[in-house]
């Protein structure tokens, strides 16, 4: 029987827990279920293509598979802004999971990606949380902050009154250590831990800035079509399962990592005061509407989201 080898470019560095937990897991499962007929050849972040180029490479069929963050495909996928997380929308991870799989947001993403020959499968939904050097106990504390941020959250934090700037990952530790910035977000506790941020910033801020499907596995449709029917189904099923398994596992790992940070680095959880949360939510809602303007599809998704949040009693 014919065997297939897929080149898979990840946007995770090898040390990121997701590289092992998401990709290596998928590699093992696919190999097992196809009796070794499908082999994934994994490449760590930056090996063949830089993160922002992975979508293009998969779309062109140069790579058979890749992992991305939706924000890397913003120029093609009009829903990417919503997929990578509207600030202060969901309050629990399960809400975001249901939005994707129960309400059909995942299918909307999949349809948009299909126009570029890409099969879209969200790897998991999870929170993005901030770490800061000094606790935020009041609105004044928040607006004083200089925060390392990126993308939509950078706009959000700036609009809300903090001073958000972009600093590349390689300089983040130094910047936080020397006080160029007072806070940063890099995933949530696992991300902060892997970047060594807890060494220099001792307060872990909750609630999350956003909760979203920030990691996505993408497959070249061309490569998928080349597989025999049974293998295509195996791949798609494995990806569907992956979402639920990883979303749950990630939450578990977030919690134990935070516990480790608390024990080993003396980190404290800094829950934002209610008035700060309220003001942040107000700012956030103004920004949501901007995302809705990107396309009819985005408008539809945003309306769906707002209805859902009203239903949950948050709006």
């Amino acid at each position: 029987e014919e065997t297939y080898t897929w080149k898979v470019q990840s946007h995770w560095p090898g040390s990121s827990s997701s590289y092992e937990d998401s990709l290596v897991r998928l590699q093992k499962i696919l190999e097992e279920r196809t009796d070794g007929r499908l082999e994934l050849e994994l490449y760590e972040a930056g090996s063949l293509f830089k993160a922002k180029e992975i979508f293009n490479a998969v779309s062109r069929g140069i790579l058979e598979m890749g992992t991305i963050s939706p924000s890397y495909a913003q120029d093609k996928i009009t829903l990417a802004g919503i997929a990578s997380g509207l600030p202060f929308a969901f309050r629990n991870v399960w809400e975001a999971a249901y939005f994707h799989q129960g309400l059909g947001f995942e299918q909307m993403l999949r349809d948009e990606a299909a126009e570029y020959g890409v099969y879209w499968a969200t790897d998991k939904v999870y929170p993005t949380e901030m770490v800061v050097k000094q606790p935020i106990n009041s609105w004044a504390d928040f607006t004083k902050l200089k925060i390392r941020s990126s993308g939509a959250l950078q706009t959000f934090l700036t609009e809300a009154g903090a001073a958000a700037s972009y600093i590349p990952g390689g300089e983040l530790y130094t910047a936080l250590d020397s006080g160029i910035v007072d806070g940063a977000h890099w995933g949530a506790s696992q991300g902060a831990f892997s970047m060594g941020l807890y060494e220099v910033a001792k307060y872990h801020v909750q609630p999350a800035l956003n909760i979203a499907g920030t990691d996505v596995i993408i497959v070249s449709q061309k490569a998928l079509d080349k597989l025999p029917e049974d293998m295509q189904n195996i791949v798609k099923q494995a990806l569907d399962e992956q979402f639920w398994f990883r979303t749950n596992e990630y939450q578990y790992k977030e919690r134990i990592t935070l516990a480790k940070a608390i024990n080993e680095h003396g980190v404290q959880v800094n829950t934002l005061p209610d008035d700060v949360q309220d003001r942040l939510t107000q700012t956030a809602q103004k920004l949501w509407d901007e995302e809705g303007k990107r396309s009819d599809n985005a408008k539809k998704a945003l309306d769906m989201l707002k209805d859902y949040l009203s239903e949950l009693g948050y709006l």
Binding site: A163, A164, S165, Y166
Partner: peptide
Amino acid sequence: MEVAFRYLFNSPTVWTNE
């Protein structure tokens, strides 16, 4: 400029580094 904006006026810009 970015250093000045951020350090002296505590208002980093979104555009200088990019």
